[in-house]
Simulated assay, not measured.
Amino acid sequence: MYKYEHGGDIYTEKLTKDGHSFVDYSANINPLGLPLGIKQAVQQALKLCINYPDPFCRELAEVTASYLQLPQEYIFFGNGAADVLFRLALALKPGRALLLAPTFADYEKALRTVDCKISYYNLQEARDFAADNDIVDAITPDTDLVVICNPNNPTGQLTSRELLVQILDKCRLVGAHLLIDECFMDFVSEEKAFSMRDLLATYPELVILKAFTKTFAMPGIRLGYCLSGSSELHTALHQSGQDWNVSILAQEAGKAALKEHEYLAKSFKLIEQERSYLRNQLAALGAKVYGSEANYIFFYLPKPENLPELLHERGYLIRSCANYHNLQAGYYRIAVKTRVQNRGLIKALKEAIKTCALY
């Protein structure tokens, strides 16, 4: 039987034993929720659904290109970033790929569909799970694709621009592509955030993955995209799946999302404040916090061993990271939410730890 391995499963059990909804800390979604402008755009677009969607997402591409200050032909849209990942695997058909460990599971899942062999660069706890310069040596002549999640999921660690340029140059030398997943970069503090998209014109080997999902709290709408300066790759992406992979509702939602400047400003301020609050509170409870530069916190807390179950009993869902490559039981990831919600989680954590101490 297929086993779902991501966070965000609010469907297996919809309510707690006392009839309340679970507070889902297992999925990293903007805590401000879906902006009103997106809701209105989706409602107004319902009348357009008698038509097929634009297979090239032309209006959305024009707006996004202006927003990113990039040529429109650099953008390929999909039914969420995960959909783009599977298309990229089919379009590139790499024989061998290098992945960080731990990292987002769907890179490997997508690559396995084209029988790609996987090599892992094991991130070291002693280095706070950050990639080091020796990753360049792990890129060999038989490497066809390198995938870097930046900031990484689940650790929230950033790979520096300088190291990414070294990796990119090594990829060019051996004839490999570099996929950089920047889906969570929107939540990184202003002084640390950066994008590699200014190098797209110079490096046709570079592909950047982005999504509307997390930033605008619209995972149920499904909208993501990748950026590449290679026209050959764009053609291959279109040939690797159906033409109507982005619904009319998703295209209209995306256009509306890019107008939500005030929403984004409020989101960044909230995330920065609450990220600091959660880091400090977790540290005070004896947890070791790593990275955590985005809208989620990655930490190690060996006791209680059944922490997810104890929090589940109290109405909270968190992401155990024990099933990630190169991790073990005791590692967890939680989303950053509002102060009221975060206080509730910390209270539940304290109760869980106290329960463990009694036995």
Rank of each mutant, 00 (worst) to 15 (best):
L111A: 02
D142C: 12
P35R: 08
I248H: 02
Q166N: 13
S119P: 04
Q40D: 11
L88Y: 02
I148H: 01
I38D: 02
Q43M: 14
R275I: 01
K3T: 08
K350T: 09
D181E: 08
L158E: 08
L46E: 15
L173D: 14
R314T: 03
L90Y: 13
Q251A: 06
P141D: 09
K17C: 10
R314P: 01
V136F: 04
E309K: 15
L88A: 04
Y74V: 01
V63D: 13
L145V: 00
L32K: 03
L90R: 14
T355P: 05
L227V: 03
A41D: 02
Y332P: 00
L111W: 01
R87L: 10
K269S: 15
S267R: 12
Y25T: 02
T16S: 05
K47W: 09
G33A: 11
D54V: 05
Y52F: 13
S231C: 10
Y203I: 07
R96T: 12
R112W: 09
K288Q: 14
L307V: 03
A284R: 11
T140H: 04
L209A: 01
W244L: 13
L199R: 06
R222H: 13
Y25Q: 04
G78N: 08
S230L: 09
T338N: 09
I221Q: 00
L173V: 11
L258F: 06
R222F: 10
L227R: 00
I180D: 07
L158R: 10
T143A: 09
Q328T: 13
S21R: 15
P151L: 06
R275N: 05
E62G: 13
F184P: 04
K210F: 03
L168N: 04
I334T: 06
I118Q: 05
